[in-house]
Design a protein around this nucleic acid. Structure first.
Lengths: 181, 181
DNA sequence: CCTTGCTATGCAACTAATTGCATAGCATCA
DNA sequence: TGATGCTATGCAATTAGTTGCATAGCAAGG
């Protein structure tokens, strides 16, 4: 149970509607916590019932009403309470690793197909790294004075960059290993 | 739906009981796909119904019978079929990143507590890295002749090592950033 | 004009995963 | 001799997450 907390952080950084949150989960927050819009709407409802967020109905011309959410004092307390709980070990789900070990039980054609898939996967992550680097240059220029929130956002982004670089190096190792089999 | 496939790979590498599988998921496979024993027993039942695995009942003195599972031809086909599907983008769930960004909305005391938590988290991952390195020296000595399966297991382990090293470096960056706030 | 895509919200059905509990006897150590 | 912990399996209840679908109108491009 932590989508609640990811939403609280996102809404504290910037209030917004369910739709806007879903956008952010696709772009920024979703780098380290994925969620679909269906899930976000459901959880927002629950959070509203619990008094963690409050919504302001905003009428719009020719479009459905927008419900702009912001975090209540009680929601902020809930976040602070959670922040002080011990960090849980993460549940790892690395599909590609399963596939690589599985390749031992496939034939030549299967391994060729896997090389193609890994190559495509690598290209995706190279694109992700480039998006991160562009975002870093845009949002965190070297000489800028950053506040606490921005410094924390930056260190998380540096984590994403480090992860993608590590992954690309490892994928090269994987491709090399597969080709030499 | 991919726990099935992780189990197929593990049973192809070495047949065994549900209990043994749960052990392996704690140790080896669990590095990249976590699962509890309850989940493993349930999925094994389903896989047996689907004809992907077959079980041999083994009576034991003073203990419950053990059901040793092995993969059938049909299970192997199912794995090979899955291996040729495109790789899905992984669902990222990085709790620590949410906490770090959340720290912007906590006070001095909260940030001090977070530094302590990150330090503990770092120690855990340092221990994990050391276990990987010991395992690597034990299972993949430099001059050994490795078969296909072992080479693939090794490249996956190298991925785990690269990940842990990257993580430790980043956690140092995080600690430094938190201390300078 | 037609198709695609965006804003904006949500229900329903299903699948997956977690948490808590239960059984049962053996081994080891204090 | 009592407590802890391991082997070995599993059910039940709950929570979380995914997939498919629905509504509704506007904007932009071919």
């Amino acid at each position: 149970m932590a989508l609640e907390h990811a939403i609280l952080v996102s809404l504290l950084e910037q209030p917004g509607s369910g739709y806007e949150l879903a956008r952010r989960f696709e772009r920024s927050i979703g780098r380290f916590w994925t969620a679909t819009h269906q899930q976000i709407y459901r959880v927002l409802k629950r959070m509203e019932t619990d008094g963690w967020v409050s919504a302001e109905q905003i009428g719009q011309d020719g479009r459905p009403d927008k419900r702009a959410y912001s975090v209540t004092a009680s929601g902020r307390d809930a976040l602070v309470g959670w922040l002080r709980e011990p960090v849980q070990p993460e549940a790892v789900r690395h599909e590609l690793a399963v596939r690589i070990r599985g390749a031992a039980f496939d034939d030549e054609a299967g391994r060729t197909a896997l090389i193609a898939e890994v190559t495509r996967y690598r290209a995706d992550h190279e694109a992700t790294l480039n998006r991160y680097l562009i975002g870093e240059r845009r949002d965190f220029p070297e000489d800028a004075a950053l506040d606490t929130g921005q410094r924390l956002q930056h260190v998380v982004l540096r984590g994403g960059i480090a992860y993608e670089r590590m992954l690309l190096d490892w994928l090269d190792d994987v491709l090399d290993t597969l080709r030499r089999l």
